[in-house]
Amino acid sequence: MRAAADTRGRTALIALALVLAGLTLLVPLVLIFVSAFADGIGAYFGNIAAPDTRHAIFLTVLTAVIVVPVNMVFGIATAWAVARYEFTGRKLLISLIEIPFSVSPIVAGTIYLFLYGQQGLLGPTLQSWGVQIMFSVPAIVLVSLFVTAPFVARELIPLMQAQGSEDEEAALSLGASPWQTFRLVTLPNIRWALLYGALLTNARAMGEFGAVSVVSGAIRGQTNTLPLHIELLYNDFNIAGAFASASILALIALATLGIKYVMENRAG
């Protein structure tokens, strides 16, 4: 009796989870592609080949290409400092790293607007030097850096703390220079976590909407990233175009999941 009830309960729970996952996750994903191809394959590629769309893809990739390496370096440096050294302000630094996660991206964008905008703190000074940050590519890169700053560091800190510094000390005692030690010992020890953090950084940098929408100005063909471009197309009632662009982001997300799955198996 009891066992039968348990089995029934389990089946019901699994069914509920599957139905919910299907409704909330799978159906929208399928719908993206259905809508993107609604006017046929030719129209789909025509939409993607539109100059504004191509520029949006270019700008999104450019942002990721800058943001990912910069935040990998930042992440390694921060994790190294936090995991290897005891210093005053260490706890504060750990909390600071988390700020981009706890702050709404809109707020992040607004902060940058207040800092670099025309009425902002640094904006007028920069403007007098001829440097325009707001509503241009540098602004997009800056806020993307901000919102993705924690990913690599958060992957590396627990790993480096768990691994300790004995391996590095061993390398140093064997005569390796600090750079050799980093390249031959530290980096291989953290490579999977580092790549995993980079992958998450990339996914977020390409998909970020809120913060970027505040600072970019969304000028078509100039400061429009893919997520912003999707919204513009949608507001123009170009539904097929919007979904065609959305399908690119969805594909990137699926690829990210796939790579993540492979890497978790390798790292684990």
Binding site: E169, A170, A171, L172, S173, L174, A176, S177
Partner: peptide, 30 residues
């Protein structure tokens, strides 16, 4: 690195991504 001292750590601190041979070779490689 400049003391020519061989140090054996309590938990060995072997380089896990290198083979035994590469581990032993490390000091000469660098």
């Amino acid at each position: 690195g400049e003391r020519r001292i061989g140090f054996v750590f309590q938990h060995y601190a072997l380089f896990r991504h290198m083979t035994v041979r590469e581990n032993v070779d490390f000091g000469m490689r660098v």
